[in-house]
Design a protein around this nucleic acid. Structure first.
Lengths: 115, 115
DNA sequence: CCGAATCCTCGGTGATACTG
DNA sequence: CAGTATCACCGAGGATTCGG
C-alpha cells in the first residue's frame, strides 16, 4: 500500500529539524509586507515616503512596524539625516541581500508552476 | 547622501513585478503549517495520523485544512483506501517536490545568518 | 482512523488623525 | 518628511466534540 520510503520511527526525527532554521526563517518572512519590502529594496536605497509609494496599498503604521522588525533582524539598514524636513534612507544589509537566491528560487518555481 | 542606484521613477515599476509570482507563491506558503507539512512530506508518504504526530503541536482541524488547501493547489496527493479503519496517504506531487530548492536556499540562508 | 462541525481567542492588519 | 497614537476589525489558528 504505497511505497513507504521510511518507517514511522525514522520519520519522527523530521519534526526536530523542522524548527532549526527553515522554521525560524519563515517566522521572519511571515509578515504581509516583508517580502514586498525586501524585494523593493533589492533595487537600491529608498526613503520612507518612496517605499510607501512603491508598496501600493500599505499604510504608514504597517510600514513603520515592518521596517523596525526588519531592522531589528539585521536585514535592513536605517540611515537618518538631521535635515529639515527629516530624511531617512533604508537599504538592505548583507544579510538582506543574501536573500536574493531565496526569492530567485521562489520566482523560478512560480514561473513554472503558477499557470 | 547615499548612493541612489536608480531614480524614483525607475523604482515605480518594482511594485508591478512584486505580485507576479513571488507574491502569489508567498500567499500559498503563508499558512502556519504549510512549510512544516511540505518539509515533512519531503521524506516520503505519510498517513494522516502520522503527519499529526510528526508535526508536533498541530491540531486536527488545522491539519485537515492545510492538507485540503495544499491538495487544491496541486502540491500534495491524497490517496484514500477503503479499508476499515480508513487509510489515507499523503505525498508530494511534482509541483510539491519542486519546492525543494526553495527550502534548500532558505535553510542555507538560515544556517549562515541565524546566529 | 479520518475527518467534519462548533465555538472562541487573539494578534496581524487597516484607517485615521496628530506631532516634531 | 517621517513617523506616533488610537480605534476597530476580521480571519487565521487553537481546543474540543461528534460522526462514518
Amino acid at each position: 500500500m504505497g511505497n513507504q520510503a521510511v518507517t514511522f520511527e525514522e520519520k519522527k526525527h523530521v519534526k526536530l529539524e523542522l524548527h532549526c532554521h527553515v522554521g525560524r526563517a519563515m517566522h521572519i518572512f511571515k509578515g504581509r509586507w516583508t517580502f514586498p519590502i525586501i524585494k523593493t529594496l533589492m533595487d537600491g536605497t529608498f526613503r520612507f515616503k518612496e517605499l510607501e509609494r512603491a508598496l501600493h496599498g500599505i499604510n504608514t503604521r504597517m510600514l513603520v512596524k515592518e521596517l523596525k522588525e526588519l531592522e531589528a533582524e539585521g536585514i535592513i539598514n536605517r540611515q537618518a539625516y538631521a535635515t529639515v524636513p527629516p530624511t531617512v534612507e533604508y537599504s538592505l544589509t548583507d544579510k538582506g541581500k543574501a536573500m536574493e537566491p531565496i526569492i530567485a528560487e521562489i520566482e523560478k518555481w512560480g514561473v513554472k508552476y503558477l499557470q
